[in-house]
Amino acid sequence: MTAAGLLAPGIQAPGAAAALTSGRRLRETVDRAVLAVADNRLPLSGDITMLNRSAAGAPRPALQIAVTDGRLEPAGTASIATDASAALALIAQDAVDLLLSAEIRRVHVCGADECALRFVDRSPARNRRWCSMSRCGNPAKIRLHQARARRSERAPAD
């Protein structure tokens, strides 16, 4: 959570095992809810309850603004969580925001065989296939190219 910028550096989570279990449970709940709504279905009532309870676990940090290239833009939040449960609450709050936004229709599952990451497709054509080009896209393209090259090498000559 520290690496994601949700938890203040140097904070040791008392009850780390419980926080890890809660984090995993929240991850699975968010995944089920996001995939359901992205597929035009309602999330399970238990998932909605868990998201609401988790999101209420900490007050939402105040949004800040900045001027970038002559425009007002969000500059992040005024504070980050000081414990693991507050960090999980921030994740739940983001999930609730996504579920209620129009962007939920742009959530896709990575097309790579060995990956199942979810991502919001913000490409202009809305046809993104992989979670990222460096992680899955380029390796998939390389494998396809190598497979085509092997097939053409084995093809009988005319």
Score class of each variant (00 low, 15 high):
Pro43His: 08
Pro43Trp: 00
Pro43Arg: 02
Ser45His: 15
Gly46Thr: 08
Ile48Asp: 02
Ile48Gln: 07
Met50Ser: 06
Met50Gly: 01
Arg53Tyr: 02
Arg53Ser: 05
Arg53Met: 02
Ser54Glu: 11
Gly57Leu: 06
Ala58His: 13
Ala58Leu: 10
Gly70Tyr: 05
Gly70Arg: 13
Pro74Val: 12
Gly76Gln: 07
Ala78Trp: 00
Ser79Lys: 13
Ser79His: 10
Ile80Gln: 15
Thr82Lys: 05
Asp83Val: 03
Asp83Tyr: 02
Ala84Ile: 06
Ser85His: 14
Ser85Met: 14
Ala86Lys: 02
Ala87Ile: 08
Leu90Asn: 07
Ala92Glu: 00
Gln93His: 02
Gln93Ala: 08
Asp97Thr: 09
Leu99Gln: 03
Leu100Ser: 15
Arg105Val: 10
Arg105Pro: 03
Val107Ile: 12
His108Gly: 10
Cys110Ile: 09
Gly111Trp: 08
Ala112Ser: 15
Asp113Leu: 05
Glu114Arg: 06
Arg118Gly: 04
Arg118Ile: 01
Val120Leu: 04
Arg122Ala: 11
Arg122Tyr: 10
Ser123Lys: 00
Ser123Arg: 07
Ser123Val: 06
Pro124Ala: 14
Ala125Ser: 00
Asn127Glu: 10
Arg128Leu: 08
Cys131Thr: 03
Cys131Ile: 10
Cys131Phe: 01
Cys131Val: 09
Ser134Tyr: 00
Arg135Cys: 14
Gly137His: 05
Pro139Cys: 14
